[in-house]
Design a protein around this nucleic acid. Structure first.
Lengths: 228, 228
DNA sequence: GGCTGTAAAAGTGTCAACACTATCAGCCAT
DNA sequence: ATGGCTGATAGTGTTGACACTTTTACAGCC
């Protein structure tokens, strides 16, 4: 009675996803149905459905009869995502602070003492989202936004100079959660993400300033997808 | 050639969507590919892709080799959606208050003076989401959550006794926006939605209380996935 | 009579071929 | 030579048929 039947669509979905995350298909790159079908040894049908699903998840953009392309994330997109995260993750940590059992809380704290800030930055955010008890918020954060974040960071490293502060802010949030002060934890989380947003905003400002003066910015011409 | 090419998948997508909204396919009802294909005079391929898209948007749930079903929203789902809305719409109105031009703001106020609270309740929320300048938030609210709300309300009328209060709260929010107090508008919006959430919570409590005590005939539910 | 195993039916998953649309190269007129 | 037109080419949209899985019905057995 094991449920997961893993149809070919799922396989192709994960396959394309990996190709995008690994950068084999670059951001903004073309997604060719026939090529992918041959690569995964399936017909074009499953590929089409997988692409449709990726499209629904926002990783691929496409218009009828036009080539599908991987989403091309710029700083402006990231700011929009961070504004959304600021609100949703605030709620996420508030709900988690109220919903988590004492043992879950202790386990969370223990894991992060162990890691000592080594783990990837998103780990705490994922962990909180999974504990908040609201499946829709969990899905929004874990299944949609965090993938886009990973995609963006894979291309252009996370904003410099943030990492040291971020770790301290994470510990503040954890302390707020431990003391069961849901509103405090929410405020801290929102401030935490708002600071990152501000960093992105500064990056955008300098970028546009640079883009205005020298103006070598070639419009992104079609990037050929290199086949392996 | 400028207009969207409207492929058959889009047509079928909208068609199924209308069938769900109109209740012709009830909540939790089965979505049969062959039947729909014949109804819309197309092959099963476009139907499959449309169903996949609906699935990505959360209106249809489905496991491999099992029949696809329209999502069955209960009060608990609605509470989760409202918790999400409380955070996101707070951000939405905050951003809109800052981003809207004076003329947009005046037009908004004028339209709602004209309507005098007649318009459907969601109109103001939609309007604000479309003005917030963050396309991702706009899409989340308008393209995902509001459809689910309409679906739920179509089945079980909105929580009674709320409408009169809601109108007053809407005007408060509008006044906050007009005075360009983004934080105030955010607080008012969050409180506005939190009150609706609380009403849903009370509904859930009485429901479960009733379900526990009398223990009436077995719910004739067809196989529903049970979550832990 | 109730239960189990098996076969038919219904429904979903996949495929390969065909139809339609956009893109690009080359040709003609200006 | 330049700009627009016209075919060839590549890629997407659609289809009907076939393979696999689940569900249902029925016969045999306890």
């Amino acid at each position: 009675m094991s449920g997961q039947q893993r149809t070919r669509v799922d396989t192709v979905f994960d396959g394309i996803f990996d190709l995008i995350l690994s950068g084999e298909i670059p951001l903004g790159g073309v997604v060719n149905e026939a090529t992918l079908a041959e690569r995964f040894k399936v017909s074009r049908g499953p590929v089409r459905e997988a692409v449709k699903a990726l499209q629904g998840r926002g990783l691929i953009v496409k218009e009828p009869y036009f080539k599908a392309r991987v989403v091309d994330l710029d700083v402006k997109d990231m700011i929009e995502i961070f504004q959304l995260r600021e609100s949703v993750e605030g709620m996420s940590v508030k709900l988690a602070t109220r919903a988590m059992s004492d043992e879950s809380m202790n386990r969370l704290l223990h894991d992060f003492e162990q890691a000592g800030g080594n783990g990837r930055v998103l780990d705490l955010h994922v962990r909180i989202a999974k504990e908040c008890g609201n499946r829709r918020i969990e899905s929004l954060l874990c299944d949609e936004l965090y993938y886009l974040l990973r995609l963006y960071r894979a291309r252009s490293g996370s904003t410099p100079g943030r990492h040291d502060n971020a770790s301290a802010e994470h510990w503040q949030i954890l302390r707020g959660m431990k003391s069961r002060d849901a509103e405090l934890a929410e405020s801290l989380m929102r401030a935490h993400i708002a600071r990152a947003t501000a960093a992105l905003q500064r990056l955008l400002d300098t970028d546009t300033a640079n883009a205005n003066a020298p103006a070598p910015a070639q419009p992104r011409r079609e990037r050929k997808e290199s086949e392996a």
